[in-house]
Design a protein around this nucleic acid. Structure first.
Length: 782
DNA sequence: GGCAGCTGTCATCTT
DNA sequence: CTAAGATGACAGCTG
């Protein structure tokens, strides 16, 4: 308690300084010594006994760490309040509430039907009077009062009958006394009602204007209330007439609400958080309602429809502020609290403060405003999807004759599909007077086969791509399973690889020879293509060397994703991370490695790094290279493999080689060639697959685009058909025979000639021509 | 140890 | 028919 007092004292000092800055004198000592109930309620929450008073005092205490209404001049007090609220409004929302309006809607018929109930006026004053100040802390109390409102409204609005048995006479008397205290204190009715709150937010108006606006703020509702009010002749204040019974009823309902609030909302503990929420709820309507607009005041439907949008915007703003203010709040809690869609006031309120009166406010809206459910539907995805889906569907264009629709749809007779039902009806009645379909020839069955699918896609919210994919799943016979979700990088790499691979085969020989000539010093054995796929170094058969097969070589990952020309094997062999690559593809071996492998004087090598290097270089040799070295082949495997046939034969002729050596050389050449061929082949295979994948995606895109276009064309076609049909009906209906009688649609029909003219012909002739036109496409198809 | 991927090699076919 | 290349199949190696 001492710490609390210290805290409050410091806060009071700060607030006093603030008030002094705006010209208000505050006696802090007086407040601290005489206002224990407010202090207690800060900690413990309001008690039922003090609730009536706390509606005002708590506002003061929580709002400004206590400004005793008796200790200051009221004019200064309210001026200070207004200024203070303006100061606070700098960083807070300040939007009035709709609850009063909603309440008035119920109140007015209630008063008119059941007679005067001064208690209603009392309830209004008691609760709304608390809302005359918008602030962060009194928002709690305003929420409290709003719940009181809601509860009371539920009673008044026949949601639930008033329960009056719990309240004792003492309670009622106490409430009455406390309420009259407020009246005597000068807290006139203008601070209780809605117009006053509006007035306080209006900077340019002073307090007295609010009393004048009282006459206009609620129209008949105000009059009904005014009947229950007495006006103080000295101060002009209005206060309820003392009507026994009615007042009791009000006090009962109010007390009941307060007790309920007390049980459900411990304000002292979480006063800060719901304050903002309630301030939002309170804030919603009056910014959008200019004073004096009785329609708005008396029509919560209108304000209710506007409020969700305002609320959404304000809620988003509030979210940003609260996220900054509540940095220390548990993030999980934040997630739970903020997980609700911002635009959904219902879920938002529930998730934020399930016990706060905002719930009651929502229920109030829902209970009192039938149309307000639409407000919530605006932010409800499920409900929102309904009108969208219905709006986007093509079926509303179609007559409601479902049977004819299905039949015509199945037979792909667009005329039957698009023409109005009355014509179909006449056609059915007359057994055949079908209307000519001037546009029917534009559509063939193949084109219409997907109409149902596309319609389904549209109605179900699929996009044409999805529809096409869905369709493809049905008619796909390729058996090729393509991962449509593969990354675009693979696509790009495939493109790059395709381009490079096309050049690799042609440039392999030339580039390999050039690279070998440029990089090899004595026995350059490496020859690389652009892809690293062409080149050779033979393997060794010895097991130790096989175990030690090196790491330098063709890297499939590199070739697949980078497609870079890493034909400089010296760079590769110097890359330390490549030493761990186990595969021995030594056809890419570095010439220097081969040189050192061929030339190392083993005796000269010291143990240690050089020996390791020799081992490493030994590992670089392939089996064929070891074989060649074992057989003392006088030239490198690179030359054996990559030399052209003529040069290779010349090379063989230069040396006198044994049959075993010649056989080995041919095998080396064969294997080397085949190895490169195999690498190229695999690379080509991969490129082919990737290209096919890309082609499939391109085709899918094209198909989706074409389907979209087709849907658009069909849509416009339907519209055109409708226009044509309406014109047909109009023209046909105006036609008269020589006797001035209209032509029967069962006997005559209009036919469009090729030159644009329209002829009136008998039905039988029109039917014959129509059948003839139907046969023509079929014959063509055959 | 089994498995997947990569690579080399062989057999076979094509050009 | 031969050489070169392409390709399927298989085995070995590695992670």
């Amino acid at each position: 308690m001492l710490s609390l007092k210290k805290y409050l004292t410091e806060g009071l000092l700060q607030f006093t300084i603030l008030l002094s800055l705006i010209g208000v004198r505050v006696d802090v000592d007086t407040y601290l010594t005489s206002q224990l109930p407010p202090l207690r309620e800060i900690i413990l929450g309001p008690s039922s006994a003090y609730t009536q008073t706390q509606f005002h005092n708590l506002r003061n205490t929580l709002d400004g760490y206590g400004v005793h209404p008796k200790s200051i001049d009221l004019d200064n007090y309210f001026t200070a309040r207004r200024l203070l609220s303006q100061v606070r409004a700098l960083d807070r929302f300040q939007v009035p509430t709709t609850e009063v309006n909603a309440w008035l809607v119920h109140r007015d018929p209630e008063g008119s039907v059941s007679g005067s109930q001064p208690s209603s006026g009392l309830t209004l004053e008691s609760s709304s009077g608390l809302q005359d100040v918008t602030g962060p802390d009194n928002g709690v109390r305003e929420s409290e009062t709003e719940q009181g409102f809601s509860e009371d409204l539920e009673d008044l609005g026949a949601v639930a009958p008033p329960v009056s048995g719990d309240l004792t006479k003492e309670d009622i008397d106490l409430i009455d006394i406390l309420w009259r205290q407020d009246i005597d204190l000068g807290a006139g009715r203008e601070i209780f009602d809605y117009s006053h709150r509006q007035k306080e937010q209006d900077v340019d108006k002073d307090l007295q204007d609010g009393a004048e606006q009282d006459d206009t703020w609620s129209g008949e509702g105000a009059e009904a209330l005014a009947r229950n009010l007495l006006v103080d002749g000295e101060t002009g204040e209005s206060f309820p007439a003392q009507v026994p019974g009615g007042e009791d009823q009000t006090a009962l309902s109010l007390e009941e609400c307060l007790r309920l609030l007390e049980a459900t909302c411990p304000f002292g503990e979480n006063a800060e958080f719901p304050a903002d929420i309630s301030s939002i709820t309170e804030a919603v309507p009056s910014e959008s309602e200019p004073p004096g607009l009785q329609n708005n005041l008396l029509s919560p439907l209108l304000t209710g429809t506007d409020s969700p949008f305002d609320l959404e915007q304000q809620w988003q703003d509030l979210m940003s502020i609260m996220e900054m203010q509540a940095m220390e709040v548990n993030t999980s809690t934040n997630e739970i609290l903020y997980s609700a869609p911002p635009g959904d006031p219902l879920s938002t309120n529930y998730s934020l403060a399930p016990n706060t009166p905002i719930n009651q406010n929502v229920s109030l809206h829902q209970a009192s405003l039938g149309g307000c459910s639409q407000d919530f539907s605006l932010f409800s995805p499920e409900v929102e999807s309904l009108p969208v889906a219905s709006g986007s569907t093509l079926l509303p264009l179609v007559p409601s004759n479902s049977t004819s629709l299905n039949s015509t749809f199945g037979s792909t007779n667009l005329a039957g599909l698009f023409f109005p039902p009355q014509l179909n009806g006449t056609a059915n009645d007359t057994a055949g007077p079908e209307l000519p379909d001037p546009l029917g020839g534009l559509l063939d069955e193949a084109m219409l086969d997907e109409i149902s699918l596309m319609d389904l896609a549209i109605e179900e919210g699929f996009n044409p791509v999805q529809a096409s994919q869905l369709e493809e799943e049905f008619d796909s016979d390729s058996g090729l399973s393509l991962d449509s979700s593969h990354s675009p990088s693979s696509l790009s790499s495939s493109e790059g690889s395709s381009s490079s691979s096309s050049s690799s085969s042609s440039s392999s020989s030339s580039s390999s020879s050039s690279s070998s000539s440029s990089s090899s010093s004595s026995s350059a054995s490496s020859s690389f293509s652009e892809e690293g796929a062409v080149g050779y170094s033979s393997d060794s058969e010895t097991l130790d060397l096989e175990e030690a097969e090196g790491a330098v070589g063709y890297q499939p990952e590199y070739s697949k994703f980078c497609r870079m020309s890493y034909q400089d094997p010296s760079q590769l062999s110097c890359l330390p991370y490549l030493e761990h690559v186990g595969h021995n593809h030594t056809y890419n071996m570095a010439p220097s490695a081969l040189d050192s492998a061929d030339l190392p004087p083993p005796s000269a090598l010291k143990k240690g790094s050089k020996e390791k290097q020799a081992d490493f270089l030994d590992k670089q040799m392939s089996r064929d290279e070891h074989r060649a070295r074992a057989m003392k082949i006088p030239f490198t495997n690179d030359k054996i493999i990559n030399l052209p046939v003529e040069e290779f034969n010349e090379l063989l002729s230069k040396y006198q080689l044994s049959e075993a050596q010649l056989s080995l050389i041919r095998d080396i050449r064969r294997r080397g060639k085949n190895k490169m061929a195999a690498q190229n082949c695999r690379k080509r295979k991969l490129d082919t697959i990737l290209n096919l994948e890309r082609d499939v995606e391109d085709l899918q895109r094209d198909k989706a685009r074409l389907l979209r276009e087709k849907v658009e064309f069909l849509r416009s076609l339907r519209q055109m058909k409708q226009k044509v049909q309406s014109l047909y009906q109009e023209v046909f209906g105006r036609l008269r025979d020589e006797n001035g009688r209209p032509y029967s649609p069962s006997q005559y029909a209009l036919q469009y000639a090729g030159d644009g003219s329209v002829l009136l012909i008998p039905r039988t002739l029109a039917d014959q021509q129509a059948r003839r036109q139907e046969r023509k496409p079929k014959d063509r198809r055959k």
